[in-house]
Design a protein around this nucleic acid. Structure first.
Lengths: 343, 343
DNA sequence: CTGAAAGCGCTTACAG
DNA sequence: CTGAAAGCGCTTACAG
């Protein structure tokens, strides 16, 4: 009963060519005369032809599924990062008629390697999207590539970036930009709550910040760092540590928005006013950043778009195209959690 | 090069029947002898056979896409609700090999009807999932059903619930449970920041709360309501209105977590301690509820799971099965934003 | 550069 | 209750 959508046969007929030729044009094959290509494209456009993804993949003869490799956490928390990653990748895969499967693996190499490689060896997938920290691991990537399986990295470290297609933010530039902004506000005394030590992006965020601050001639004794793990609790703990240290910064820089939420909680408990008594800034621009009190000044990371792009890159990888790793520029989002320092 | 997954032919051969029979068993057709069915099922199980969704839908001959009808907002904000709805529906559709398309329409009937019905009339979809407030509109639903198109409602109102398959939370029970909890904490003076007037769930949340409070013999003069729109800003405005009113409740109940975030912001600005000076509670248990300061006591609504279920219901609808609307029980999540009232 | 033909894995009338 | 056959919309060797 559904209306018949135009098929490749309709296009072929209208263009006066065979279905094979239409298929070639659709798939960008080089073996088509320019005039023929044009004719087919016109015919397709005038019919508003959309290829049927199911049929396309069926005919291609593959498993039609890509696997997103996520870190599993102890608590089965759904983080906004994972959600947007999943949602973006799902959307991207959908556009290509691909199934997406999640593979939540606990990151403890070499044990974790088994879990990642099992579906690869079983040929249960056509490609892998690696989220951090897996995207940072050259050994894992080599293992996958030795099995001829396309891999795409999200937020890869510098060691793995040359190895695969992928997409990430320029974390160093992000840290640098945030540093410059704080400097412009008059801040000269900084506490930095770090992310996980093994996490490349976390290190880069700090290094970029450090560079900005060094360039401004800030004394090393005026920046103090504290350990953290990207989560709310470590933000709260870090904030407490800052207070206990007696260091008295004018601003606390958090390696993630979750940590900033924790730090903010600490500030409220200490009855400090943000940003009047103390500024708090962070990285990510997670969806909740605008809901905190006060709304967070932060550096935006386009997770959803990156994940969607990752799906495109996997498709390119399946086709055998070689696409280089791509770096997205950071974007500062100014809201209310950072203010000028009182003089 | 990928390993050949078992196909329906392998199962047929192992079971000693035709492929048509295997297909019938897979699709639950009644016209198969019990013994044959068992034989086929055993064969499928032993081969770990998974039907190829692409092929299945191709052969079925449909558009293979379901449309999720979302309300568009003026600001192009991505709300957690929309994200989880989209993500859940996407996941659900994927499992059935269905495409998902978003249709963001501004809810202003009857003008909005056109936007919803266009793809239906064009036969561009096999079914529709309606998010609120569209799921509340019996006229829209009648219009869709008159076109023989399967519809599934998420969080439908009582007027539309008998009309379609769907899934939602028992909002009245949610309000009642929250009311009882606050009562048990000793609260007797309540400010309720309402959701949008046209929004059924918003009304129910208040009505359920009202019932609990009435049953406890609380005087009507001890509950005061304030208008709101579910968002951060209206929570902040509502909080200010509460303060300006001089009503002095011991707890502010917000119709959504976003509103609670806004109210919390207001409380911080007023230098009030939550929950020591004032309790604040809400509905939804959005992902950010745990990141606010203090973490929110709230009633959980399983949006992701509901959206995933909606996809299952659409598939049932396409098959022609008649499934009744389903109501999920609410779940109170106790965190730190509500405390016992000082006596 | 292009076409005829086989095939991807399944479903669905059509017979029996 | 079951099977043989056609077909879903596309891709891909194979010829030419």
């Amino acid at each position: 009963m559904p209306r018949q959508l135009p098929t490749i046969s309709d296009v072929a007929m209208l263009a006066g060519v065979s279905r094979a030729t239409v298929s070639r044009v659709l798939n960008g094959s080089a073996l088509v005369a320019e005039r023929t290509r044009r004719r087919v494209q016109d015919a397709a456009a005038s019919l508003r032809f959309k290829p049927n993804a199911q049929a396309r993949l069926l005919a291609g003869g593959r498993s039609h599924t890509v696997i997103l490799v996520h870190p599993a956490t102890d608590r089965h928390a759904v983080t906004w990062y994972n959600m947007m990653l999943e949602s973006g990748a799902l959307r991207g895969c959908m556009r290509h008629g691909l199934q997406l499967e999640m593979n939540l693996v606990y990151p403890d190499p070499p044990h974790s390697y088994e879990h990642v490689l099992r579906p690869v060896d079983a040929m249960d997938c056509d490609g892998l999207i690696l989220a951090p920290p897996f995207s940072d691991d050259p050994v894992l990537i080599a293992l996958i590539q030795s099995r001829q399986m396309p891999v795409v990295c999200i937020a890869a470290g510098p060691a793995t970036r040359p190895l695969t297609a992928g997409i990430g933010m320029d974390e160093h530039a992000a840290g640098f930009e945030l540093g410059q902004y704080l400097l412009s506000l008059g801040h000269r005394r900084f506490a930095f709550l770090l992310g996980p030590r093994q996490h490349y992006a976390a290190r880069e965020r700090f290094d970029g910040f450090q560079r900005a601050v060094d360039a401004a001639g800030v004394s090393p004794s005026d920046v103090m760092t504290f350990p953290g793990r990207f989560d709310f609790d470590s933000g709260l703990e870090g904030f407490t540590a800052v207070r206990d240290s007696g260091f008295a910064p004018t601003v606390v820089i958090c390696a993630s928005d979750e940590m900033a939420a924790g730090a903010l909680h600490g500030a409220h408990q200490a009855r400090l006013r943000v940003p009047d008594d103390l500024s708090i800034v962070s990285f990510d621009d997670a969806p909740f950043a605008v809901l905190l009190s006060p709304p967070l000044t932060t550096i935006a990371q386009p997770v959803y778009a990156m994940a969607q792009k990752a799906a495109d890159l996997i498709v390119a990888g399946i086709k055998g195209d070689h696409v280089p790793y791509e770096l997205t520029k950071p974007r500062l989002v100014v809201r209310d959690s950072a203010g000028p320092v009182a003089r």
